[in-house]
């Protein structure tokens, strides 16, 4: 099987099928990143489409000093951050975070998994974009701090700091979900599996 780098090289050389293969390989995880970062399927679809088209156009800018997946993640995350920043008006205070989370409480008849997903999504949307992106990559997708730093193009310490502050804000909002026996760690092993191919 051709590597991502080989496919990208073929795409640059004019192979019209190569980029489609890259998209096929990575679209699910790019979708996951965008959906979790933006918390809105329509916005996520727009962001992923913009990102893939952008990657298609600027494939020649890829220099091989990073993995193709890192490069794609960076483009997707930047597309998401751009969208979030365009919509961002002001930082949200902690009490507003809690109120908003309570407003978005799921219906009691929903399954536990969906319940958690909705609550986490609602809570994440209240974080500043940078903290949200860091938590999505590290805690939700299971990437290492170093990988996340490469995607976000910031030092590892910055990723750790953003994660720490984001978790500190989320802890009171999601405290009622603690110690749920029906919750299992799903994303990180999956993220690691995807990341490692």
């Amino acid at each position: 099987m051709l590597s991502d780098a080989d496919l990208l090289t073929r795409h640059i050389a004019g192979d019209t099928t190569a980029f489609s293969e890259i998209v096929k390989r990575h679209r699910d995880r790019m979708w996951a990143v965008a959906l979790r970062t933006l918390g809105d399927p329509d916005e996520a679809a727009d962001a992923v489409q913009d990102a893939f088209v952008s990657a298609y156009r600027k494939a020649e800018s890829f220099r091989g000093d990073a993995a193709v997946t890192t490069w794609l993640h960076r483009i997707v995350v930047n597309a998401c951050l751009d969208r979030m920043r365009r919509k961002s008006v002001r930082p949200v205070a902690d009490d507003e975070l809690i109120e908003a989370a309570e407003r978005d409480m799921p219906m009691p008849d929903q399954t536990a998994e969906r319940e958690v997903s909705l609550e986490v999504t609602a809570a994440l949307k209240l974080l500043p974009p940078d903290q949200r992106a860091a938590l999505v990559l590290v805690d939700m997708m299971g990437y290492s701090v170093e990988d996340a730093a490469a995607v976000l193009d910031v030092p590892s310490g910055t990723v750790k700091s953003r994660c720490a502050r984001g978790r500190a804000k989320l802890a009171p909002i999601l405290s009622h979900l603690r110690n749920r026996s029906d919750l299992t760690r799903v994303s990180s092993p999956k993220g690691a599996e995807l990341r490692d191919g």
């Binding site: 699910d28 979708w31 998994e113 802890a171 110690n179 919750l183 990180s188």
Partner: peptide, 17 residues
């Protein structure tokens, strides 16, 4: 509680595009 946040975030299932 902070550790639980990490677990909760990780528990959100991945969905295909």
């Amino acid at each position: 509680g902070l550790a639980a946040v990490r677990e909760l975030l990780a528990a959100v299932p991945m969905t295909a595009m």
